[in-house]
């Protein structure tokens, strides 16, 4: 493979890994606090729609981003209402949220833009544009092509990794958040509100999914199309297990899955050691890897202990 081709593949790896990374971190906060979230897909989707729609109307990508975050947080709140306040089944709530987003985005698009399931394509002002870092031209192709020339959201997403790590492992809030996912009784005994912590975690989850969705429709592409998340929420969930619910591992897992997507996108058939590997196998690779990891044959992935269990305060 030529050096330049390699660079291009890596560049698109970064682009494709970003939404996965953000969604994965979103799931990480939620699941670490003991709330299963299979609604990542739906939250990203609704955020993708509202950021594109509002960015188109307002002409500003940043206003769009805020609208996307708000819509995603709303669904997060709904998930919290169902799974924390009313102690409902978190999986069912997640499924409902995915459907709600899939249906509502098409319905609202039809009403606002008279086009079922899409927004008009966005002009340059209404989308996030790539920024050239200083000395992009003079510091060689790796810096110029790979490191520089991404949108602000890409750098923001990478920044989220150390920040998430710091919040989770070096702050009091993070300790409590992790404790709520492992042993909520203990947290309650210490006088901290379990529902409060869980709602806070879901709020963070909503923000991150919102950014992920906005990235899809206003940075990666110029506008919203129906079902544009295309299963990324589920890949993020897979990456979360792959990463064993840890921020730094999440980065590597999502980069790996991004690489698989980038390679599948670039090569229709890939020759590996004389055997033609179909692209569908590349598409399915993250899922297969996740099942293998879950089976516990390659390192055991141990989820937060109280994940999925509604907390009932003792009387």
């Amino acid at each position: 493979m030529e050096f330049l081709t390699l660079l291009q593949v890596l560049d698109s790896t970064v682009r494709l890994a970003i939404p996965l990374l953000l969604a994965c971190l979103a799931g990480l906060f939620s699941e670490r606090a003991g709330i299963f979230d299979i609604g990542l897909e739906g939250k990203m989707l609704i955020a993708a729609f509202f950021s594109a729609a509002v960015a188109y109307v307002s002409g500003s990508a940043c206003v769009g981003l805020l609208a996307g975050i708000a819509s995603s947080m709303l669904l997060s709140g709904l998930h919290g209402l169902a799974s924390i306040t009313f102690r409902g089944n978190q999986l069912i709530s997640g499924v409902a949220i995915n459907f709600l987003a899939a249906g509502l985005t098409v319905l609202i698009a039809a009403d606002w833009f008279q086009e079922a399931g899409r927004t008009p394509s966005l002009g340059s002002g209404a989308r996030f544009v790539p920024i050239d870092l200083p000395f992009a031209d003079s510091l060689g192709p790796v810096y110029g092509e790979l490191v520089s020339g991404h949108t602000i959201l890409v750098y923001l997403a990478f920044l989220c990794v150390p920040v998430s790590w710091w919040v989770l492992y070096r702050t009091r809030f993070g300790l409590r958040l992790r404790a709520v996912g492992e042993n909520p009784e203990a947290v309650d005994t210490a006088g901290i509100s379990v529902p409060g912590m869980r709602f806070a975690a879901l709020a963070i989850c909503g923000v991150l999914c919102g950014v992920a969705g906005a990235y899809l429709s206003t940075a990666l592409q110029a506008g919203f199309v129906k079902d544009m998340t295309a299963g990324r929420g589920y890949i993020a969930l897979a990456a979360l297990i792959f990463a064993k619910w840890r921020p730094w591992y999440a980065l590597w897992a999502t980069l790996l899955f991004g690489l698989l997507q980038a390679v599948a996108l670039r090569y229709q058939t890939l020759e590996l050691g004389g055997i033609a590997v179909p692209t569908q196998l590349m598409d399915a690779a993250p899922y297969i890897l996740t099942v293998v990891i879950l089976a516990g044959f390659v390192g055991k992935a141990i989820p937060p202990k109280s994940g999925g269990v509604p907390y009932v305060k003792e009387r």
């Binding site: 169902a82 009313f86 102690r87 089944n89 459907f99 249906g103 098409v106 319905l107």
Partner: peptide, 28 residues
């Protein structure tokens, strides 16, 4: 009508939400 058929998906989501996840909201 001008209502896209995706309305069913929304109705379906609401049914799942109310009968499954917000079950207690109705029952309590």
């Amino acid at each position: 009508t001008s209502i896209p058929r995706e309305l069913i998906v929304v109705i379906q989501a609401l049914v799942i939400l109310f009968t499954g996840a917000l079950d207690n909201m109705v029952r309590m």
